[in-house]
Write a protein that binds this DNA or RNA. Structure first.
Length: 479
RNA sequence: CGGGGCGUAGCGCAGACCGGUAGCGCACCGCGUUUGGGACGCGGGGGUCGGCGGUUCAAGUCCGCCCGCCCCGACCA
């Protein structure tokens, strides 16, 4: 079964994606090029993502704060690689209140600099460390080519910024937060990500080492779904963040930063959606269960609605996010399609037959058509739907993982790598030479996605130059 | 910034080649019949045709300039 009006996922993935975002009412185009409005349904999804992450941040000892949107231009210039990386995409304010500003203000593209400045004021002693602050906010990057959620001029995200006394501690923090992201992606969003290290050419501007969670989208392209950076002392030196250690020696701190954005909504759409529309993982879905009453006259209506009200109350009290769709101006069939487009994981249909039999119809979004439909007793419904939502969540992760693994191949030679990355990921030995990486990019548009943390034993020959290689890496075309 | 496409009602489009005072589908409003997989009938409301200028008795249509958006490439979470 598929939506006759929706572009096909297989034939035109890009168009399919755009239509889902608009029709499921996640977002809409704004009047400014490259900007979007996040609609209530999309924002509700983001709020659930925020909660799932924020809980994990708090559990790992972090606190939230808010730093300014405007950053003095000179701050950006203090870290060489950072300014080189970001200057092409800065939005800069030169006039305020009708007056030309003494110093232009940058609309933050990320906040390492202004936070570094503040940390230098706050951190004086080893007793002040570590500083573990996160902020939820928005940033602006003037991208050439934009796409709803994946790359917009303004986007919403969280950015964590931490300062530590030792390199080891900062490196641990970097990996701790990468684990938090991976745990969130896998267990909340059912997006099976791969944790790894970015190559030199792909790392964050100003980082010593960038780590990433990489996900495979439904068109087999890769998406960087979250990053965690070890910044070494680069920003500490640029902003003079120094403390006195326990030997009364002045030391620079070691910092990290890590971020995950509304882009992740794009990852969810492109991982799970089908030709019928969006499919949301139960743990993040703004509406987990939609109840569709079915009746054809007033007497049926009152009988049906009595059951609908009773069961929806029962389910809400059991902690589920439930919506009843009482619209009378559209038919049940229309509603089925409508909620399937919006990706609601579970639908409950209640009609005269169910009133009679004391049953309800359950329809799983992840299993389309009649196969996913079952009639179950009204008694014990909360337990049953709870189990079913868990099963849906698990099945979504299994399907996405199977799809990913099916589309990762190990090329025997360079020619095979070239073929594989046209429509999948290649997992291959790489000597680490940027020239080999650049050649692959030049000839195939595929980049190194990450050097996975989990490495096979032993060593091999670089897939490009045949020199000795001691690490395997994923090559793929990316968003 | 290069290549392509498009701008006409809220959305999707026709009308343009061949100039004559704007139409279709969906959505919306009203009434009635419908309702277990995208209902139907009848009646209705809604448009400075992206903007500016030019040609003409007359411009959605022809000419010029500008603006915007989407898609494809180089850059990126």
């Amino acid at each position: 079964m598929s939506d006759e009006n929706l572009a096909s996922r297989r034939d035109n993935f890009a168009e399919w994606y755009n239509q889902i975002v608009l029709r499921a009412e996640l977002a809409d185009y704004a009047p400014v090029r490259g900007c979007m409005v996040v609609l209530p349904y999309g924002w509700a999804l983001w709020e659930n993502i925020q909660q799932a992450l924020d809980r994990r941040f708090k559990e790992t000892g972090h606190v939230n704060a808010a730093f300014p949107l405007f950053i003095p231009m000179s701050f950006l210039e203090k870290e060489k690689e950072h300014v080189e990386g970001f200057s092409p995409e800065l939005a800069i304010v030169t006039i305020g209140g009708g007056e030309k500003l003494e110093e232009p203000l940058v609309v933050r593209p990320t906040s390492e600099t202004i936070i570094g400045y503040m940390y230098s004021k706050w951190i004086k002693s080893y007793r002040d460390l570590p500083v573990l602050i996160n902020q939820w906010g928005n940033v602006v990057r003037w991208e050439m080519r934009t796409k709803l959620f994946l790359r917009t001029l303004e986007f919403y995200w969280q950015e964590g910024h931490t300062a530590h006394a030792t390199a080891e501690e900062a490196r641990e923090e970097t990996l701790r937060m990468l684990d938090v992201y991976a745990d969130f992606a896998i267990n909340e969003a059912a997006v099976p990500v791969i944790k790894g290290i970015k190559s030199e050419s792909e790392k964050f501007a100003g980082a010593v080492q960038s780590t990433t969670i990489e996900a495979m989208m439904g068109d087999r392209r890769a998406l960087q779904a979250g990053t965690s950076h070890f910044l070494g002392q680069n920003f500490a030196r640029a902003f003079d963040i120094q403390y006195l250690d326990w030997h009364n020696q002045l030391q620079y701190v070691w910092t990290t930063s890590w971020g995950l954005s509304t882009r992740f909504i794009g990852a969810i759409i492109m991982t799970h959606g089908d030709d019928q529309g969006l499919i949301l993982p139960p743990r993040l879905a703004p509406i987990q269960i939609v109840i569709t009453p079915i009746y054809k006259n007033d007497s049926e209506k009152s009988a049906v609605m009595a059951v609908v009200d009773r069961l929806s109350t029962e389910l809400k009290e059991a902690g589920f996010r439930v919506k009843v769709d009482p619209r009378e101006e559209v038919t049940p069939g229309f509603k089925f399609n409508d909620w399937e487009m919006r990706g609601v994981p579970l639908r409950i249909e209640i009609g005269p037959r169910d009133v009679q039999n004391e049953t309800v119809a359950l329809a799983r979004r992840d299993i389309p058509g009649k196969t996913g439909k079952s009639f179950v007793p009204q008694t014990g419904l909360a337990n049953r739907v709870g189990e079913m939502l868990k099963a849906i969540q698990q099945s979504m992760l299994e399907n996405a993982t199977a799809f990913r693994d099916k589309n990762i191949h190990e090329p025997r030679d360079y020619a095979e790598l070239k073929e594989i990355v046209q429509d999948g990921w290649a997992f291959a030995w790489w000597c680490g030479d940027p020239a080999c990486e650049a050649r692959v990019k030049e000839e195939t548009k595929a980049t190194t996605r990450c050097i996975p943390l989990e490495q096979p034993k032993g060593s091999g020959k670089c897939i490009v130059c045949s020199e000795k290689a001691d690490q395997k890496v994923y090559f793929a075309r990316a968003y």
